[in-house]
Design a protein around this nucleic acid. Sequence first.
DNA 1: ACAGGCGAAACTTTATACAATCTTCGCCCG
DNA 2: CGGGCGAAGATTGTATAAAGTTTCGCCTGT
Lengths: 235, 235
Amino acid sequence: MAAKTRQKPDAPDASDRVSRIREGVTAAILEHRLLPGTKLGEDEIGEIYGASRTLVRTALQQLAHEGIVNIEKNRGAFVARPTPADAREVFEARRLIEPTIVDRAIDAVSPAWLDRLGQHLAEEREAELRGDARASVRLSGEFHRLVAEMSGHGIYLGFLKELIARSSLIILLYRRHDTPACGTDHHAGIVAAIRKRDKARAGALMLSHLNEIEAELFLKDPAADELRLADVLGA
Amino acid sequence: MAAKTRQKPDAPDASDRVSRIREGVTAAILEHRLLPGTKLGEDEIGEIYGASRTLVRTALQQLAHEGIVNIEKNRGAFVARPTPADAREVFEARRLIEPTIVDRAIDAVSPAWLDRLGQHLAEEREAELRGDARASVRLSGEFHRLVAEMSGHGIYLGFLKELIARSSLIILLYRRHDTPACGTDHHAGIVAAIRKRDKARAGALMLSHLNEIEAELFLKDPAADELRLADVLGA
DNA sequence: ACAGGCGAAACTTTATACAATCTTCGCCCG
DNA sequence: CGGGCGAAGATTGTATAAAGTTTCGCCTGT
């Protein structure tokens, strides 16, 4: 019967327009097409997506709540610029949550999920061979989200989505050398451990993976943000 | 100079009107004055706070993102009614995060914070003696938030605020017997451990505290929601 | 030439009006 | 008398317009 009118409350690819805006802007930020500090004018975005400012505003407010956009009163919305302190908090939280998520994911493992993971690893490898940095960045984050979805834990998934989005900005701002793909092999190792249902090993690998990513960051004084940003923009 | 015009971006008690609406509704939900499933009409709330629907809508969207309000398309906003599965997820997440938060709080301990904690315990005791159930519920949640603020970890604090708000709804829906204050002594014990900077003990006490709260819940089939709600309303 | 202030333009914020959708109540038919 | 159809009422979704704030350029005075 009325199965089409009442769609589930938080449809993943919700076809309404505000979700399309939100996901478009999110993708642009996660792929490093929009740099930290960039002004996100309401008219500007509205014209791109053919939507009214009302809808754009809604989307921007959601992004602000997720921590990847800052809204300054009477000034507008800007792509967030996490401080080194923020960065340390984000990675501490990820080190706490993600090993647990892997653990739960192994509980929920199934052939279909293993296929999905294998397929994702293939995509990551392909993007890296292609030298497509944007796709690599996006897929790297999506791997972690995939594991969280696999765990079937909605709250962990929500938290992790936030942490991943912020991590993307942090990596852009503070990565030391431009090691293009730090941990493709790491992901493969984690999947292997999941296949073997080896919780201890999977959790340990996830932890060391996160540690290695953070170790490649240069988290010093906040004033260095400007320099770093100029560097990225010049390249 | 212009110190009043540009206040910090995420002021805790932001005096703008949308925050006042959000906090008012949140307080009403946390104090169990608004029951799960209650319709939150935009005009209705707008008239109470003397605000336009635009502002009310913004506040409701924020509450929806925090998980304590559900917005159904073309139907309106309702106080969320967590399922037993949601409840288990919330408490699993709290068991993971809160011991870590206590740990970090002990790192940041100071005489001022210890005063604040002691003062809070006194308030809790007083409310309980008074038999003020509403204040008890609110203060019980605020204790956990206080520890999170003490930890100085903004992300953990944000996550925990969400979890506490949801917990309040869960306890209302699924508590077995009306044990008025399950864990006032627990809170005191945790504070004592914090005073002694005994991380292991503080974390363990927090964990058992959460376990005991969850143990008092009756998490069976989702269909029982209706009965439970009717029970509460009748009382 | 330079500092300070005035003013206009652009943008965000808030309110209001319009359109679309759902709910409810009444009526009619079986 | 019960069930279903339909129209009126109410409520939400969206767009547009009015109001307030910030910012930038320009002009004047020293």
